[in-house]
Computed example of a mutant assay.
Amino acid sequence: MNGVDWAELWSQVFNFADYGELLALLHNSIIAGAVLGVVGGLIGVFVMSRDMAFAVHGISELSFAGASAGLLFGVGVVEGSIVGSIAAALIIGFLGAKSRDRNSIIAVLMPFGLGLGILCLALYPGRSANKFGLLTGQIVAVDDPRLNSLIAISIVVVVGLLIVWRPLTFASVDADVASARGVPVRALSIVFMVLLGLAVAVSVQVVGSLLVLSILVTPAAAALRVSSSPIVVPLLSMLFAVLSLVGGILLALGGSVPISPYVTTISFVIYVVCRVVAASRARRGVSDRRVSARRPVALDA
């Protein structure tokens, strides 16, 4: 039985020969990664506050189905991905007002979307790399037209979030009180789902449908571990997402495996570090309170 050739395995994961020449070819991909990092980090804050991490995965499966159908019928991967994402977002938004209903709807949509996408890919006669890229991501397919559409959609998402930021934050914290104050909670929920669908659609183009959570959920979850500030958390979330995507793209350039393992690993490491920092702060806080409790109270003369 032959053993594992660790040198060959390492060269497949990290191989920086001719790295400089290859780097010049990924100018569009690096820009796309930075833009998606900003979008994912920003909308991820609301995904966490509204407890919709599961919804992201459900939308990504329908986005995958739409992209696969677009690839099969020649409509376009981007167009198909957007249609699938928005369709899923609207279904979840209209039918899943309550958390229990939303989770059951997502659980129904996920296998349907994945099965439909696999069917379309099985019927697609083109290269297998295109099929595999929809699931695990690819960095070489970001040409100028795709980059322009990605940036345009990302601008729509960011501007939309900024417009509804304050009422959406209020509705995310306490929907009942927000509704009593006249905030259109239902309409905001639909608007947010559409923006989330667009964010998922553009993210799937780079990181793939199976691992989109690493951009739209993990950075925000990490940021919330180290801060509760309404200003610091979005900034940290965007920073973590940009580092994960751009760092993953730069590492993937030196290997022969898809981009997704690099992005998810960087994102996971950031999350683990943030958890360690939060735990260290908590222990330090407990220790300080114990010391303060043991100090004698000075009596007034």
Results as ranks from 00 to 15, higher is better:
residue 194 V to E: 08
residue 187 A to Q: 10
residue 236 L to P: 03
residue 217 V to T: 06
residue 257 V to Q: 09
residue 183 V to I: 12
residue 231 I to R: 14
residue 187 A to R: 14
residue 254 G to I: 02
residue 232 V to I: 15
residue 260 S to F: 03
residue 255 G to Q: 00
residue 194 V to K: 07
residue 226 V to L: 09
residue 211 L to F: 14
residue 213 L to S: 14
residue 214 S to E: 04
residue 181 R to G: 10
residue 231 I to E: 13
residue 201 A to P: 08
residue 245 L to V: 13
residue 224 L to Y: 14
residue 255 G to S: 09
residue 192 F to Q: 05
residue 246 V to L: 08
residue 201 A to W: 02
residue 239 L to C: 13
residue 197 G to T: 07
residue 227 S to K: 03
residue 231 I to P: 14
residue 255 G to F: 01
residue 196 L to H: 05
residue 271 Y to C: 09
residue 249 I to F: 05
residue 244 S to E: 06
residue 254 G to M: 02
residue 210 L to Y: 09
residue 227 S to Q: 01
residue 225 R to P: 08
residue 274 C to M: 02
residue 269 V to G: 10
residue 209 S to L: 11
residue 272 V to F: 11
residue 256 S to W: 14
residue 246 V to E: 04
residue 263 V to R: 00
residue 214 S to M: 11
residue 278 A to T: 10
residue 241 A to C: 10
residue 270 I to H: 07
residue 209 S to C: 15
residue 216 L to N: 04
residue 240 F to V: 12
residue 212 V to D: 04
residue 252 A to D: 07
residue 191 V to Y: 11
residue 210 L to W: 10
residue 219 P to L: 01
residue 185 V to F: 03
residue 275 R to Q: 15
residue 242 V to Q: 05
residue 238 M to E: 09
residue 207 V to K: 00
residue 265 T to K: 06
residue 234 P to F: 09
residue 240 F to T: 08
residue 244 S to C: 13
residue 251 L to S: 10
residue 220 A to W: 01
residue 219 P to D: 05
residue 238 M to Q: 09
residue 267 S to I: 01
residue 251 L to R: 03
residue 215 I to V: 14
residue 226 V to D: 12
residue 256 S to K: 13
residue 206 V to T: 15
residue 261 P to T: 12
residue 214 S to W: 01
residue 244 S to G: 12
residue 232 V to S: 10
residue 260 S to A: 15
residue 210 L to Q: 14
residue 192 F to K: 04
residue 268 F to Q: 10
residue 182 G to E: 04
residue 206 V to M: 15
residue 181 R to Y: 14
residue 184 P to I: 08
residue 248 G to A: 03
residue 191 V to Q: 13
residue 200 V to P: 05
residue 211 L to K: 02
residue 262 Y to G: 05
residue 265 T to V: 13
residue 209 S to N: 12
residue 257 V to G: 08
residue 252 A to N: 07
residue 198 L to G: 09
residue 198 L to K: 02
residue 217 V to W: 01
